[in-house]
Amino acid sequence: MSEHAFSDAERAAVYRAIGERRDMRHFAGGTVAPEVLGRLLGAAHQAPSVGLMQPWRFVRITQGELRGRIKALVEQERLRTAEALGERTDAFMKLKVEGINDCAELWVAALMDNREPHIFGRRTLPEMDLASLACAIQNLWLAARAEGLGMGWVSLFEPQALAELLGMPAGAKPVAVLCLGPVTEFYPAPMLVMENWAEERPLSDMLFENQWGERQ
């Protein structure tokens, strides 16, 4: 084992947070203490980013009226998505897809504006700014689980409409509405699995060696 490895207990805690992280839709209200929120945002800000561009921006939603307008945008997209699903429309409409009204904290994670000059690591893969933001969100998610808080990533919204609602500058793009806060319990498995919407595939299905589709 590497001399730089964590202790057994520390490693177990890291893997537990990863294994028990869930995309939460059910929240128990309450609040998130300022010092805890500070730790969570600090964890997000320590995410890796291509070219150290740190493209993440987080907007905290504290106005009830604004929270309601964001929920309305999500509901509009939920209905559009349901229509696009065809024969699965009824099943989709029965799913709980967000916890905007019930979560203690509501945040919007977005990409910064004026990203074009940042070409380090992005000349051929410009979407690496999005990958960097996703890493920040994942850091926040895992830290939240370690703190005993639930988090849900909501992507059912029209980006331009949400950007206008939040007064974002041209070029900035909202990527996630994040519901955060206390929960009564964590799902024992992904909610979509529990609701029989989808099945998890094993890791072995995703592993190739040397050539696409070739397995060891």
Rank of each mutant, 00 (worst) to 15 (best):
S2Q: 11
E3A: 15
H4Y: 15
F6R: 09
R16T: 11
I18T: 02
A28G: 01
G29N: 08
T31L: 09
V36I: 13
A44S: 03
Q46L: 15
G51Q: 02
Q54I: 10
I61F: 05
T62Q: 10
Q63W: 12
E65S: 11
R69F: 06
K71D: 10
K71T: 14
L73E: 00
V74R: 06
E75T: 11
E77H: 13
E77C: 12
R78E: 12
T81Q: 12
A82L: 06
F92A: 05
L95R: 09
L95W: 11
V97N: 08
E98G: 03
D102S: 05
L106N: 00
L111T: 03
N114K: 12
P117M: 11
H118S: 06
T124K: 12
T124H: 14
E127W: 15
D129S: 04
L130Y: 11
A131W: 13
S132N: 00
L133A: 03
I137K: 01
L142Q: 09
G148V: 05
E158N: 11
L162H: 04
E164L: 09
P169H: 07
G171C: 04
A172Y: 07
A172G: 04
P174G: 07
L178M: 09
E185Q: 13
M194T: 09
A198M: 02
D205N: 01
F208A: 07
N210Q: 15
N210Y: 00
G213Q: 02
E214I: 15
